[in-house]
Design a binder for these strands. Structure first.
Lengths: 123, 123
DNA sequence: TATGTATGTCGTAAACATACGTCATAGTAT
DNA sequence: ATACTATGACGTATGTTTACGACATACATA
């Protein structure tokens, strides 16, 4: 009875666990890229070709707090690294992790190829 | 005063508009792929190599209502097409739209390449 | 030591996403 | 016509994300 209640409570928003590891992995990566701010942060880190030791929020239309939050998401996912350098924090892309994420993403994108409705309907 | 209130109200969750068109486009595509159910749906549509005329929820660990909702998201984004075929609806991938989305996604993924911290820090 | 500057942390409000039950609709078949 | 079946539409509860202000912390420098 108690167990059933817990299961039912957890069911909302946790059905993701019922899908394959790979599907979850792709979804996780896609989620990281699903906000323009995080795209902008990654692009900025790539463009500067060096660590960002300064306030990235100055080049983004967001408050420092919000940017920090997005950075934290990217960092906890491993996509970027951040090292404290005196007064500032040096953020940069973890190319190894990012390349692996790209590989997973591209594999999926190329798997989605279908010959549709060859005989059943008109779409 | 009234205008200011509206602007302030709209500011939450609409900062996305302040980013570039391309950043928004990538984020939009990524968001579609950010849930395992939608990945699973796309993979299933690709695997069957034909229209799905039946209840996709039967091969997914989700209720019919929820699956229908995910299908609607993919459809309104144009990634899949759905034609009513009598009693059932024939869903299939719009390969042209999907290929374009893949292109946009891959372009971004390959743009994120940085030589990090060559001289500034140790990450 | 005090002061300034840069960053992280916490709390919170509002918007959005997920999941599902229930009802309505529309075609199929008896 | 009536019952059956498959789907869409609507409403709703719960969880998550986004955005930011306010406070705490930590280092550099005067």
């Amino acid at each position: 009875m108690f167990t059933t209640y817990i299961v039912l409570t957890l069911m909302t928003y946790t059905k993701a666990l019922a899908f394959s590891q790979e599907q979850q992995e792709v979804a996780r990566i896609a989620k990281l890229l699903s906000h323009p701010a995080r795209i902008a942060i990654l692009e900025h880190l790539a463009e500067t070709k060096s660590c960002i030791s300064g306030d990235i929020s100055k080049v983004l239309p967001l408050s420092r707090t919000t940017v920090s939050q997005h950075l934290q998401e990217l960092k906890s996912a491993g996509l970027i690294k951040g090292e404290i350098e005196g007064l500032t924090v040096c953020y940069c892309i973890d190319q190894e992790v990012f390349d692996e994420a790209r590989k997973v993403m591209e594999q999926l994108l190329h798997r989605i190829k279908s010959v549709c409705c060859s005989d059943q309907c008109d779409c």
